[in-house]
Design a protein around this nucleic acid. Structure first.
Lengths: 220, 220
DNA sequence: GCTTGACGAGGACGATCGTCCTATTACGTA
DNA sequence: TACGTAATAGGACGATCGTCCTCGTCAAGC
């Protein structure tokens, strides 16, 4: 029951629509609210520690519709939650890039805002992918694939930004990997140690590193 | 049942003895084998996905002795597993420091050997603490405390090494945090992406960074 | 106006969970 | 040899797990 292909889950719309309002729907659909609640609960206490009952209770959604919206079972919910979490992070990165208009600044701001949000949630709301990924790799092929896709997407987005800033493709890939690893590790350490410091330290270091790197590659 | 102090678990010898052979015991004790198996299973599939039955079956230890050796229940087993995992990492770091006789070299070797071991295990054997920590923070106070203690221990060991190499205490703490965050993030990414590259990239970067840092601080 | 299907409601189902129990065996000490 | 403690053995226990089922509701399409 755990050796799925990762492809046999019907893509029932997934979590692409931002927030319903498609055909006059008054509030977020049941399915959407289930996924949003899953993102919060999964990154708080993980996949296996979150039961359907806990989820529908927290989301205020009907218990009976769970397998109507997610015929693939809890695994499909996990995939949808990771996909939504991935979307949220991508949107946040894009927003920070626009706000700071500087790649090193955006990376530092990413670390800082992540640290602030983590602290505000009493060190609970870490990465929406890491916990589930570590729990389910490689036990569930579908969740493994979704986690991998999320990381690759974030890494690719960063790499493209470095390339756009004049960094050579190979080095850009390395920098993207390094940034993502530092942020993920910082999130992990900050959460467990209950301190913003690891993420702040990572942010400052990356800011200095990327500043030098971009100046060297694009010396105009 | 989850709001323990983390101190009320009787230290029944813990996981200190290397491998039995204390009074003519032919093989590792039941308790020790349970903990060792728990380290492997917990970091593979996490805490909640590993049941007592799975564990005693994998360890080949008597099912009836579980609550004899761990009257604190599964939570106590989790704490013991994290403690043992922490010991193993500390021993590995010390060994690498002796082997390479260079702090940057030891950090790079840490990344490389971690990547190799991860790949050899088919990208299963990641950090022995991270998975359980993310799952159980802050749900279980005892496991949270144990995870935090492990990270602080590793961080402290690194910081002391930097101080011994002439780095000022404040900067040494930052570097230690940065190294640990990079390694943990690298382990996470390498595992999910099924590639040694993230850990290798982190290792190379840290090697260069620390080389410059130590040369600057101790210019003899 | 009747059919159809999406969706909400609630619970049954067997499996498995962590926990805890009594009985029995192994073994150091007197 | 007798005995007390440690350890093993195996299963009972209630709770909860993920899954799946039937039924009621309601809006849209012919």
């Amino acid at each position: 029951m755990s050796s799925r292909e990762g492809q046999d889950i019907p893509p029932t719309g997934e979590a692409r629509a931002p927030d319903a309002t498609l055909s006059g729907m008054p509030e977020a659909s049941t399915r959407q609210r289930m996924i949003e609640t899953a993102v919060h609960l999964f990154r708080r206490q993980g996949y296996h520690a979150t039961s359907w009952r806990t989820l529908v209770e927290a989301a205020g959604t009907p218990w009976g519709s769970a397998y109507h919206h997610f015929p693939g079972g809890k695994e499909q919910l996990g995939v949808a939650a990771i996909d939504l979490g991935s979307d949220v992070v991508v949107a946040q990165m894009r927003e920070l890039l626009v706000e700071t208009r500087s790649l090193p600044g955006a990376v530092r701001a990413w670390c800082r805002t992540s640290a602030e949000r983590l602290a505000e949630s009493d060190y609970i709301e870490g990465c929406p992918v890491a916990t589930v990924a570590l729990e389910s790799t490689p036990e569930s092929a579908a969740i493994t694939a979704a986690s991998r896709k999320a990381f690759e997407r974030w890494c690719g987005l960063l790499r493209d930004q470095f390339v756009a800033n004049g960094v050579k493709r190979k080095r850009a890939g390395e920098l993207a990997t390094l940034v993502l690893a530092s942020v993920e590790g910082g999130l992990l350490l900050s959460r467990v140690l209950r301190s913003k410091e690891p993420l702040f330290v990572a942010g400052e270091h990356l800011f200095v590193l990327l500043g030098g790197e971009l100046r060297a590659e694009c010396p105009l």
